[in-house]
């Protein structure tokens, strides 16, 4: 589907999907948005398998379909890069760390109480790091995908709505007709200038 297919074999793509999503599931805490920086680093910048625009499509899609956000992201990236085989490899990667660690805890340490101050501190550290990663990724994606006044106005307005606690799903649904209207306006303008010039 991509025009310039990089020289990565199918088997290597499956391994990359499995390995990256296992790594993400094992290291990244804090829910859906937190995984985006590592996905961007691995699949967009290093391996050029997915574009910045497609990453934003992913962010919108994973919140509109049901299911765990990390798993939904794995499904999107897997399908884009390697079809249904890619989906299975990526989802297997997302589930493996959870299944392994939880089974070990449930089988051997059923009364574990996770209130160790070092552990809690480590979590604050990881979240602070992920905050930084998201800042850098957000700026990178903004630079690559903001093309004109339409995006600038929409992003600002949607951010304000989000800060006023409007559910992200409503914001995504609201954005669709706006995008359609803008695209129709653009095609109409091109047609008109084509006729007059």
């Amino acid at each position: 589907m991509e025009s310039e297919e990089p020289s990565i074999s199918y088997g290597k793509k499956l391994w990359l999907l499995f390995y990256t999503f296992a790594k993400i599931a094992a290291l990244v805490v804090g829910g859906g948005y937190a995984i985006l920086p590592v996905v961007e680093e691995t699949f967009s910048r290093k391996n050029k398998l997915i574009s910045s625009e497609e990453l934003l499509d992913m962010m919108a899609l994973v919140q509109t379909i049901p299911g765990i956000i990390a798993a939904n992201s794995a499904i999107y990236v897997g399908m884009k890069i390697a079809g249904i085989g890619g989906v299975l490899a990526a989802v297997f990667g997302v589930c493996l760390p959870s299944v392994t660690v939880i089974i070990i805890i449930a089988a051997f340490f059923p009364h574990l109480k996770p209130e160790n101050p070092y552990l809690l501190g480590a979590f604050v550290g990881v979240r602070a790091c992920i905050t930084g990663l998201i800042i850098v990724t957000a700026v990178r994606l903004a630079k690559k995908t903001i093309q004109g006044w339409f995006e600038i106005i929409c992003v600002t307005a949607f951010l304000i709505l989000a800060l006023f606690k409007l559910n992200p799903v409503y914001i995504i649904v609201l954005s669709m007709p706006l995008g359609i209207l803008y695209t129709l306006y653009c095609t109409w303008r091109i047609k008109r200038s084509g006729v007059s010039g």
């Binding site: 948005y33 985006l36 625009e53 934003l56 499509d57 992913m58 962010m59 919108a60 919140q63 998201i134 990724t137 957000a138 994606l141 903004a142 995908t145 903001i146 339409f150 995006e151 929409c154 992003v155 600002t156 307005a157 949607f158 951010l159 709505l161 989000a162 992200p168 914001i171 995504i172 609201l174 954005s175 669709m176 007709p177 706006l178 995008g179 359609i180 803008y182 695209t183």
Partner: peptide, 11 residues
């Protein structure tokens, strides 16, 4: 086109 702006705002 619209959804990308929403996603960027979410980020």
């Amino acid at each position: 086109k619209g959804v990308r702006s929403a996603a960027l705002a979410m980020l």
